[in-house]
Simulated scan of single mutants.
Amino acid sequence: MERKNGLVISGFLGLFILIVFFTIFLSKVENSEKVDGKPQEEKVEENEKPPVVLDPITPAFTSNELTALPSENWIGNGGNVFNQRYSTLDEINSSNIKNLKGKWVTKLGSGLEFKYSGEASPVV
């Protein structure tokens, strides 16, 4: 029983020390964000400037383009940065999906077991 009480006390002591250090950290961060005792004003630009292109091969996207649902061209195979794989296109719908046929198939030699048969990220 004495050992259990010691573990409980040491747990509370550790939590107390953690809270003290976290409070000190927050006060340091708050003080570093002030200049001459006044909070710094955040600069907010009304028009988002296009990003600087560092690599001419890789296209540059704005933050709005990265997070929007794709309507025409996807920025990656997941559609957007959240990998939602959702398209707003409406050419394929519940009435015509039964008419779709596969155009090509390839064997990669991996995932030969049956449990892997349905795993894929098709690029349409």
Rank of each mutant, 00 (worst) to 15 (best):
I92N: 03
E48Y: 06
N83Y: 09
K28F: 12
L108A: 08
I17F: 07
N77H: 05
V20L: 13
S63N: 08
I9P: 00
Q84H: 13
P51W: 02
S63T: 09
F22I: 12
A60K: 12
G79W: 00
G37S: 14
N64I: 05
N99G: 06
F61C: 04
K34Y: 05
L66W: 04
L108M: 07
N96K: 12
V20P: 00
S110E: 10
G78S: 08
K34A: 06
A60C: 10
Y116H: 14
P50Q: 04
P39N: 13
F12P: 00
N93C: 07
I92E: 01
I57N: 15
P59C: 05
P50K: 11
G37D: 12
A68M: 07
V124R: 02
F16L: 15
I57K: 15
G37W: 09
N99C: 03
T58W: 06
K103N: 10
I19V: 13
K115L: 02
N73E: 14
I75H: 00
E2K: 15
L15D: 02
S94D: 11
K43C: 03
L100Q: 03
W74E: 07
V124Y: 04
I97L: 05
I97D: 00
K4S: 02
G78F: 01
V44L: 10
T106G: 04
I17C: 10
K107T: 07
D36A: 11
L7V: 01
V52W: 01
L13S: 13
V35F: 09
D90L: 06
W74G: 01
E30R: 15
P70A: 13
G78M: 02
A68E: 08
L112A: 10
S117C: 08
G6K: 15
S10W: 01
N73I: 12
N83E: 05
F12D: 01
E33M: 15
I97G: 01
G76N: 15
P39K: 14
S95Q: 12
K101N: 07
N96G: 06
S71D: 11
S87N: 06
R85D: 02
P50E: 09
L13H: 04
T62S: 12
K49M: 06
G6H: 12
L100G: 00
D90P: 00
D90E: 11
S95P: 00
S27I: 11
L112G: 10
G111A: 06
